[in-house]
Amino acid sequence: MKTAITVFPGTNRERDMAAAIEKASGSKPDLIWHGESDLAGYDLIVVPGGFSYGDYLRCGAMAGNSPIMRAVKQQAERGVAVLGVCNGFQVLTETGMLPGVLMRNAGLKFICKMTHIRCERSHAPFTGSLNQGDVIKVAVAHNEGNYFADEDTLDRLEGGGRVVFRYSNAAGLVDATTNLNGSQRNIAGILNESGNVMGMMPHPENAIDALAGGVEGLKMFAGLAGTA
């Protein structure tokens, strides 16, 4: 499997993501600087977390208009799998590849903690060995993770089975008490209409080692390894 991970000024999770994908798939991803405009030949493109362009204007707004994102969009239109995590999710919404927007957390605080997310549907290649209803423990680290879209868009997402992850507790309960950032309908991860682009706020790439954060994120990457 050939994987590209995009790197912008201010990106900081690209090595974590590369380590997770290498661990799961055995092949080392290429880190691609944002000035590049050709991403042909990759099976998977990941837009990782961080603070691209210092979050200037809006999170992901500058990166969303960079040359490499035009290339990511082109590849996505050809059916290549694209995963955006955290700032990557914000970037994908800014490019219009995913609907909605990630707003400031409802509690106005940066949230950096372990949380649980419930898998709402099993969808290759992104959810790996996870089945509907499975709960994994992963970290979140964001200031703007509060997913917002208008009611029509939310209903379309739900109707199309495009909500992939919701914030929950360990038992899989999804309600206001498990909604850590104010996201509409506890949404933590969604798909685009054709199902080859996914964005999520939590960091599965930081849950791949028993000594640091647990290994539950690996369940997701097991599927990514089989993309090619």
Binding site: L57, P99, V101, F148, D150
Partner: peptide, 9 residues
């Protein structure tokens, strides 16, 4: 429309 505002919100 292209950059300064995100017209979703």
């Amino acid at each position: 429309r292209k950059l300064l505002a995100n017209t979703v919100i």
